[in-house]
């Protein structure tokens, strides 16, 4: 299938979630979510609205993954070794 057509159809039918929260609402909950996830809880069990937003918003997803990566490095003591 033509790539652009495929992306368009996916964007309309797969990425789009009715009643999905916006970036601002998602962002407000990200730090709370990251704390819980780094304590070992699965993200799907926590805040489904945030999970839905992260699935359909590449920008928020990228930032959330970066946040988790830094927090996990901190927990593993990797940030203090950067001197």
């Amino acid at each position: 299938m033509d790539e652009q057509l495929h992306k368009l159809i996916n964007s309309i039918f797969v990425d789009h979630q009715e009643n999905c929260i916006d970036c601002e609402t998602c962002c407000q909950q990200l730090s709370c979510l990251a704390d819980m996830v780094t304590s070992g809880v699965e993200v799907e069990q926590l805040l489904p609205a945030v999970e839905d937003h992260l699935r359909c918003c590449a920008d928020c997803r990228e930032e959330y993954q970066a946040l988790l990566c830094i927090m996990r490095a901190d927990l593993n003591g990797q940030l203090s070794k950067l001197d």
Binding site: S31, C32, D35
Partner: peptide, 14 residues
């Protein structure tokens, strides 16, 4: 509702 440092890191990431 989170650690202050997590909140600040989230801002830094953005």
């Amino acid at each position: 509702d989170s650690l202050f440092t997590t909140w600040a890191t989230r801002i830094a990431v953005r």
